[in-house]
């Protein structure tokens, strides 16, 4: 049996010291299985962003352990953690964070270029995935010329271009209208869900919750309960 894509055990994370100390994560136990879309839901400030930063290896937990595909992040040398992020994780951000100076194709090629792939090959691969996502005619345009939905599709292409095993999406529909957000989620579900791949979505947009296989509800630094919205339908 494959190990879970993400496994968090008793994650604590605090910021500051003394009187200014803020306890953001208070003992998170959480698992995201491969082949599923897992949502992290909860109100603003409940610790969702801190948790995905810890899962992505961008923040060290104050205590507890995180493992990705069976590999413990804490015991990994820093270079290996960077390599893991480069190879096995794709990111979609709320504000897209596309590089305005680069064309659409170049933006999508960034993860491949970061992995030292030849520019021509990287652009070819980027063009192919953009074509799949319906942006084949926008390859050479700057991101600023695209609508919000198109920019989020470019961000999605960038997250998927290097075929990562885990895709982390931070509020992917927050800046989009309902219809566009729905389309982006459909694309994400169609492109990212794969038996060896997991998708972790941070969102408090309940209009897209039906895409989830599991929803971990967070509040005040802990996971209060986990829903499986499709479980009854499939049963």
């Amino acid at each position: 049996m494959n190990p879970p894509a993400v496994h968090c055990h008793q994650i604590h994370r605090h910021f500051g010291n003394g009187d200014t100390r803020v306890h953001v994560l208070r003992g998170i136990d959480f698992t995201a299985a491969s082949g599923q879309i897992t949502f992290l839901a909860g109100p603003s400030g409940c610790g969702k962003t801190t948790l995905i930063s810890v899962i992505a290896g961008l923040l060290q937990p104050s205590s507890g352990s995180v493992s990705l595909f069976g590999r413990d992040l804490a015991s990994m040398p820093p270079d290996d953690a960077v390599r893991l992020r480069r190879k096995d994780i794709g990111f979609v951000f709320q504000q897209y964070h596309l590089i305005p100076a680069l064309s659409v194709a170049e933006n999508v090629a960034v993860p491949l270029l970061a992995a030292s792939m030849k520019r021509r090959d990287a652009l070819e691969q980027a063009s192919a995935i953009l074509d799949k996502l319906g942006l084949g005619d926008r390859l050479h345009q700057p991101p600023a010329r695209l609508s919000g939905g198109q920019q989020q599709r470019v961000a999605l292409a960038r997250a998927l271009v290097h075929q990562p095993r885990l895709v982390i999406c931070d509020e992917p529909t927050a800046a989009l209208d309902h219809e566009t957000g729905h389309r982006v989620m459909e694309l994400l579900a169609a492109s990212a869900v794969h038996p060896d791949r997991a998708v972790l979505v941070v969102s408090h947009d309940n209009r897209i919750f039906h895409f989830a296989d599991a929803i971990a509800h967070m509040d005040d630094g802990i996971i209060t309960h986990i829903d499986h919205p499709n479980a009854t339908t499939t049963a």
Partner: peptide, 16 residues
């Protein structure tokens, strides 16, 4: 800074 941070998140090393 944010654009460079995005690169860091995507696995670009500090040296690079």
């Amino acid at each position: 800074t944010t654009q460079l941070a995005v690169c860091r998140v995507m696995g670009v090393t500090r040296a690079r």
